[in-house]
Structures are given as C-alpha cells and as structure tokens.
Amino acid sequence: MADDRLAPGALALAGVMARVCGWRPGEFWAATPAEVAAVLAGWRGDDDGGGGIDGAALAAMMEQYPDG
C-alpha cells in the first residue's frame, strides 16, 4: 500500500533536510516539494549553473539575517 511507503521516506527526507540545511520539522513539513528539490539541487551543485553566491554576499546575508 502506498501509505506504508510514504512515512519512512518522508521521515528520512526530513532528516536529510535537517542535516543539510538545518530545517526543523515544522519547516520541512511547511515546504513544498519544489522548495525541497531546489534546496537539494543547490546543495548538490546542479542548480542551473547560476554560479552560486560569493563570500562577500554570503557574509552580508549572514549579518543581515543572523541565526538566533
């Protein structure tokens, strides 16, 4: 039955998203499949060749949006 396969896969993916990007369970469950795919694509490096973000831009973003 499909219901038997969804829960273990979803829990495993929630764990991956927690490790990869620090998402809490509520953030994972609120995300769309497209958002999860976009985050994982960027993490893996196959993000349409957009070039990513440079160190200065990352530092500015971290200053503007600090953790905690």
Results as ranks from 00 to 15, higher is better:
G52Q: 06
A12Y: 10
P33V: 14
M17E: 07
P33N: 10
M17R: 04
G22Q: 03
G22I: 04
P66Q: 06
G15N: 13
R24N: 14
P25R: 15
A56F: 01
A2H: 12
M62G: 01
A18E: 11
G49D: 00
D4G: 08
L58V: 04
G42L: 02
E27I: 01
R24S: 13
M61S: 08
G52W: 03
W23G: 02
A12Q: 13
G55P: 00
D47E: 15
D67K: 13
M17C: 12
W43I: 11
A10W: 08
A12N: 06
V39N: 10
A12V: 09
E35N: 07
A7L: 12
E63D: 08
G15V: 12
L58I: 04
M1R: 11
A38V: 06
V36T: 13
Y65S: 03
A34S: 15
A31G: 03
W43S: 11
T32F: 01
W29D: 09
T32Y: 01
A37K: 11
L40Q: 06
M61L: 10
A10C: 14
D3A: 10
G50M: 01
G51W: 03
P33D: 07
M17N: 08
L58A: 10
L58S: 00
A12M: 09
W23M: 12
Q64P: 05
L13P: 05
D4C: 09
D48M: 09
G49C: 01
V36C: 08
G49T: 04
A57Y: 04
D48E: 14
G22H: 05
L11A: 10
R5W: 14
E35Q: 14
L40F: 04
G55N: 03
A59S: 07
T32G: 13
G52P: 03
A56Y: 01
D67N: 12
G45K: 05
R5I: 08
I53M: 13
P25C: 10
D48L: 13
A30Q: 15
D47R: 06
G42N: 02
L40S: 07
A30L: 14
A37R: 09
A56K: 04
A57S: 09
L58G: 00
G51V: 02
D48Y: 14
A18W: 02
A18C: 04
F28Q: 03
C21T: 07
F28C: 11
D54R: 00
M62P: 02
G26V: 15
M1V: 10
M62S: 07
R19Q: 13
G22Y: 04
E27T: 14
G15I: 08
W29L: 15
A7S: 06
M17Q: 06
P25V: 11
P25K: 06
L13E: 11
D67M: 11
P66W: 03
G45D: 09
R19D: 13
V36R: 06
G42H: 04
R44G: 15
W29M: 14
L6A: 14
R5P: 01
T32C: 00
V36W: 02
A2V: 14
V39G: 00
G42R: 05
A59N: 06
G49F: 00
P33C: 09
E63I: 02
E27K: 07
D67H: 13
P8S: 03
A34H: 12
G50F: 01
V16M: 10
P8Q: 06
